[in-house]
Design a protein around this nucleic acid. Structure first.
Lengths: 182, 182
DNA sequence: CGCCAAACGAGACGTAGCGTCTCGTTTGGC
DNA sequence: GCCAAACGAGACGCTACGTCTCGTTTGGCG
């Protein structure tokens, strides 16, 4: 990304403002350029779609915030898993992130590049933290275990079958821990 | 839907042909109308977007095929859950259904009507069948149980983290059954 | 300090799809 | 066999597309 720093920032700000006003389907390259006070060519030089601009803006912001996911270890597996699930739920329910991720996964078959960027810079660290905590607990199948924990969270987020209430998360974590205690 | 039957069929055929050629993002109302030999007004009278046309076409086809999901009961819970998971996997990996569902869930926050139609006519029967089988097995929390079974399947489908191999499904079902055997 | 190439803001350009509309022309139910 | 409702066709102005060509900053190097 060879765009000048100040320009990048203005474009990021513009797309975040616009997505709040018109939603992801309402984003346009011309709109972003105009709001950022930039030429269209400048936008096309670096990004290939409004969704790509939004993805970059959100990932840049989240990276500036923390960068990596800490692996908690209070000794109690259920407690630590809750912390990790809470982090993921926070990400999934933040409105701009929610909308962006939905549209990125929609285009995943057609534009794998977008999905990889999301995967690499946002999801993988979360999954890795969960697997690490399982391994520390002596769980052999940490991969399937992480999927068992995250799957229902994504399912509930994706299909909006119910809220992420205290009680639901507690029940879910309990079932997962039970599945892994041979 | 007051469109004449033969017209509906021609539109359904047209959108299924087109989505295979140009993908969901390439679908347009004008393209569907032209391919179906219909006027644009006729399309707009019944549907409000190309994705809505595709959703209707796929749901109509799948309803004509079977209509409802059978609840298997061989006596072995793991075996029956496999059958139900296999059915869901088949639906999720059929290319046009795959693409359609991704785009519908992407628009779910903006256009809840689309999501409800998908939910009601396709997903709910699957979930109900799984919950019914759990209840027959004496599982108290059949709701969370169904989520535990389906969540990782959707997670793997959505993020494409790995294939639906024999081995993965077997391991996953085993973990779920174990989570529920108090 | 002054230079110069790279990056930039602005916007013109032809194309395509949008959603609405107005035409005649089927078409099917009474 | 009649007549209103539904239809095929396509014109209309509009918006966004992606490419392009302009001058104009701008920042690094001598």
């Amino acid at each position: 990304m060879s765009v000048r720093v100040s320009t990048r920032d203005r474009v990021h700000r513009a797309v975040l403002e616009l997505v709040a006003e018109v939603g992801v389907p309402g984003l346009t390259m011309e709109g972003v350029a105009a709001r950022a006070g930039a030429g269209k060519q400048t936008i096309y030089r670096t990004w290939d779609s409004p969704l790509h601009v939004l993805l970059d803006a959100l990932l840049t912001a989240s990276q500036d915030a923390d960068g990596r996911v800490e692996v908690p270890d209070t000794g109690d597996l259920a407690t630590d898993l809750r912390v990790l699930v809470d982090g993921m739920v926070a990400e999934l329910t933040d409105p701009p992130s929610d909308a962006m991720m939905r549209h990125v996964v929609a285009l995943l078959p057609d534009r794998p590049g977008l999905g990889e960027e999301l995967q690499e810079r946002l999801l993988r660290p979360q999954v890795a933290a969960i697997e690490a905590r399982f391994e520390r607990a002596g769980v052999a199948e940490s991969g399937p275990a992480a999927e068992l924990l995250l799957g229902p969270v994504f399912h509930r987020w994706l299909l909006r079958t119910g809220p992420f209430s205290e009680q639901w998360i507690a029940t879910h974590v309990r079932l997962v821990v039970q599945a892994l205690s041979t």
